[in-house]
Design a protein around this nucleic acid. Sequence first.
RNA 1: GGAGGGGUUCCCGAGCGGCCAAAGGGAACAGACUGUAAAUCUGUCGGCGGAGCCUUCGGAGGUUCGAAUCCUCCCCCCUCCA
Length: 378
Amino acid sequence: MKTGISPFTLLRRAPDCPARCGILRTLHGEVRTPVFMPVGTQATVKAVTPENLEQLGAQIILGNTYHLFIRPGHELIRKLGGLHGFMNWHRPILTDSGGFQIFSLKDLATITEQGAEFRSHLDGTRLFLSPEDAVQIQEALGSDIMMVLDTCIPWPSGRLETEKATAMTGRWAARSRHAQADSGQLLFGIVQGGMYRDLRQRAAEELVNIGFDGYALGGLSVGEPKELMYEMTEATVSHLPGEYPVYLMGVGTPEDLVESVYRGVDMFDCVMPTRNARNGMLFTSRGRLVIKNSCYRDDPKPPDEQCSCYTCRHYSRAYLRHLFMSKEILAYQLNSIHNLFYYCSLMAEMRHAIEQNCFTAFRKNFYSMRENVESATI
RNA sequence: GGAGGGGUUCCCGAGCGGCCAAAGGGAACAGACUGUAAAUCUGUCGGCGGAGCCUUCGGAGGUUCGAAUCCUCCCCCCUCCA
């Protein structure tokens, strides 16, 4: 929305760190932050139904501009009720712009000032995505939060290269804001700047000058050491206006979420809970559990004895291992439900801790739960 | 009874004198996975701490400097004919 009014209401700030909780208002309702957004690239969070998502506590999910643009096409989705009607999800949706695909499909993409030219990863068709196109496609998709098209810089990258790419992302951001119609959809800018604190700062200031409904941190968790990622997060957040939501894109592990909330981030998305679920790895309050490992062959315990998700309430590790080893479809569904529940619950716990002014204690406890356990004896 | 084909490392299956501890699958075991080209990818996969050595290609002999590969006999399996 081009109103200049923040869609975000800050409810509480931690007394001893930048952690905070709040409410983000969108066309499809409010989102309590800090929040984790399951990734549903192709108008589906892989292996789970929208009903599953509601039950496990997902407040908002992602969709992807590039993928939905090439298949089935944004005009088709517009006709069939927008993304919400098309996929039967009636809570908020954030759509990524395709910027990450410029990065992950770099061998198929060519970047110019005008935009990104792709050869479709499906059939090689040449297609073009400009910042304006990305906004218009997301308007057709009807997402609640749109992301500007950006260029994600790999790690490591030299300063000059980073500076150039970041400057162009800034110009693309201005064009995106300008291209936006008055639909009520929110538009977030994306701070790049690689691993250079001053470039991050400059990028943040440029975006704030343009004025967005929220600010995202892009180009992190691209292979750099964790400490560097946390340092860049800190450095960037400190230059963003506190009354707007802050979104750390593509992150991360449960530890990353805790560390980033601790540093003032409000929103996250990551394929990790869903992808790793499909690859036989479950997140638990005591650490990671690789359900395909032979030690769970006859283990009657649920994946996480502390967890109250549908999977943990009904199924044993032995059964889940059997399903996974047999490549049964249900394995992917039950594992995904568990991991997403774990992520969403972790965020709920963090919100609660911030509201109760005890986030620092929460963070300490989060780690002590893990330190007490050897992965083999989870 | 006659004619032909075959028995290979957990399974399927290639190899048909040296480059073979033996291709390639599968299974199994382990690892990776961070804005999803991902129900994907990588590694290990006879034994012994390694260079190396030892045991292995239905069984027993033999030929050869050298055999999973050639010869003899034996044991199983399959197809066709009677």
